[in-house]
């Protein structure tokens, strides 16, 4: 069997798929809660269908709130179980090396949509700058998800508490929470589309996709996609898993 490099802990894999399932359910229920012609993302029909499916708007709200609280609890549990992993993740995704990473991002976008020819025509080397544990695309999406996730969770809790503990003087907070919750979800969702394509559909990231189940990637994948991480692992003598 080829040499493998460990990439994700079991708890990392678990929180990833837990987050994915929660996101799908929260998106489906949450979009059904918006019913105002000026905002309604899919236009009329969807909120009504979702509401009748679960027996009314009140039930849909209760389901959305319930899943949302489970989602937050899941992340708190993850932080308790694997705080070191979370700290490593945050340190990696928020450390950007501007020249290297911006160059990677621009070239990658051209390569993925138009191919290497336009880069060559402009006299640029289509070879991508070497990347670390995460490439800049993964970092950008992770940054949006983390920042967006915090906004979504905090505004969600404010809305949840609105008719449970808040008085009339707090409605400004609640109303702004609704707006920010909507905007944050929209922006993370935009990134999510690219994330799903890159990770699950694009053939070249297939080993990365598999590692979100097995936790490890093959040596040649690590070498070509995450060169700086691979070099560090080689020089520091990290024990590769066989």
């Amino acid at each position: 069997m080829a040499k493998m490099h460990k990439r994700h802990d079991k708890s990392d894999i678990l929180i990833h798929w837990f987050n994915a399932v929660c996101w799908v359910l929260l998106l489906l229920t949450g979009v059904g809660l918006i019913q105002n012609p000026a905002i309604d993302p899919f236009g009329s029909g969807y909120p009504e269908a979702m509401r009748s499916l679960v027996g009314g708007g009140g039930n849909l709200l209760a389901i959305h709130e319930g899943i949302g609280l489970v989602w937050i609890a899941g992340f708190i549990l993850y932080l308790i179980v694997n705080f070191r992993g979370a700290r490593f993740f945050l340190a990696e995704v928020f450390s950007v090396s501007p020249a290297r990473d911006m160059g990677w991002m621009l070239k990658k976008m051209v390569l993925m949509t138009l191919g290497p020819k336009p880069l060559k025509a402009m006299g640029m080397d289509p070879e991508l700058p070497a990347q670390g544990f995460y490439n800049m695309g993964q970092k950008a999406f992770a940054q949006v998800s983390v920042a967006g996730g915090v906004v979504i969770a905090v505004t969600g809790v404010i809305m949840y508490l609105s008719d449970r503990t808040f008085g009339a003087e707090a409605t400004g907070w609640v109303s702004w929470s609704i707006a920010l919750h909507f905007i944050a979800v929209g922006l993370v969702f935009a990134g999510l589309l690219v994330h799903i394509y890159m990770a699950a559909i694009s053939p070249e990231e297939r080993p990365g996709f598999k590692s979100m189940f097995t936790g490890a990637v093959p040596d040649d994948y690590a070498k070509h996609h995450h060169r700086l991480w691979w070099e560090k692992a080689e020089t520091e003598g990290e024990q590769p898993t066989e």
């Binding site: 993302p41 400004g172 109303s175 609704i178 707006a179 909507f182 905007i183 929209g186 922006l187 935009a190």
Partner: peptide, 18 residues
């Protein structure tokens, strides 16, 4: 309320980004 106006104004931009 300004928050609702902001949500209505932001909606087309959010849709545009998506």
């Amino acid at each position: 309320p300004a928050s609702m106006v902001a949500m209505k104004e932001a909606a087309p931009l959010v849709k545009g980004v998506v």
